[in-house]
């Protein structure tokens, strides 16, 4: 068992087989740096619980293909990313920090799916980006491909 500590001082025990899906922790264990509790100063307990839930479910991913559990995992993944926008980014940041490739892919794909049909205004608001383009530059981008700004799928709502 490996002990992880969130930035709000909560400790979690995780099986080594699950936790080594994180390249970062795998390297720590290999280098003999994981003898006691591993502090994770960038991750709060709420996010860490989600990450551990994912790691535990994907523990035997290699075997899933043989045992026919692939559909089960697919369903789990679909349910897993069904979370709020802010929460999704907390998990993405944690997966990036812990270097868990599959989790990063899953969550970034979900973020892309949610952004895909958004208007420019909605994207800025969702990602807290300030527009620094001039009006002329904005118009130029629209003139280059006006069709990319049109279509019934384009959604101006935030979330």
């Amino acid at each position: 068992m490996v002990k992880l500590k969130s930035n709000d001082d909560k400790e979690f025990e995780v099986e080594e087989a699950a936790v080594i899906q994180s390249e970062m922790i795998k390297n720590m264990i290999e280098d003999g740096c994981a003898t006691s509790v591993i502090p994770l100063p960038n991750i709060d307990s709420k996010t860490l619980i989600k990450v551990i839930e994912y790691l535990n479910k994907h523990i035997n991913m290699g075997k899933a293909a043989e045992t026919g559990e692939e559909d089960d995992l697919k369903e789990f993944d679909e349910q897993f990313v069904n979370m709020g926008w802010e929460e999704l980014f907390d998990v993405i940041m944690a997966a990036n920090y812990l270097n868990i490739h599959e989790l990063m892919e899953l969550c970034c794909q979900s973020a892309a799916d949610r952004l895909k049909n958004k208007s420019v205004r909605a994207v800025r608001e969702m990602l807290k980006i300030t527009n620094d383009l001039t009006e002329e530059e904005e118009q130029e981008i629209i003139n280059d491909a006006p069709w990319a700004f049109e279509g019934p799928e384009i959604d101006d709502t935030v979330n």
Binding site: I92, M93, N96, M104, C108, Q109, A111, A112, L115, K116, N117, S119, V120, V123, R124, L127, I129, T130, N131, D132, L133, E138, I141, I142, D144, A145, W147, A148, F149, G151, I154
Partner: peptide, 21 residues
């Protein structure tokens, strides 16, 4: 992380999102 997400978007979204910033 922005790069990872943008890499997963279709061409139409990318052409529109050039206007984000």
């Amino acid at each position: 992380i922005i790069i990872e997400i943008l890499l997963k978007l279709p061409a139409k979204s990318l052409l529109r999102f050039k206007g984000v910033c």
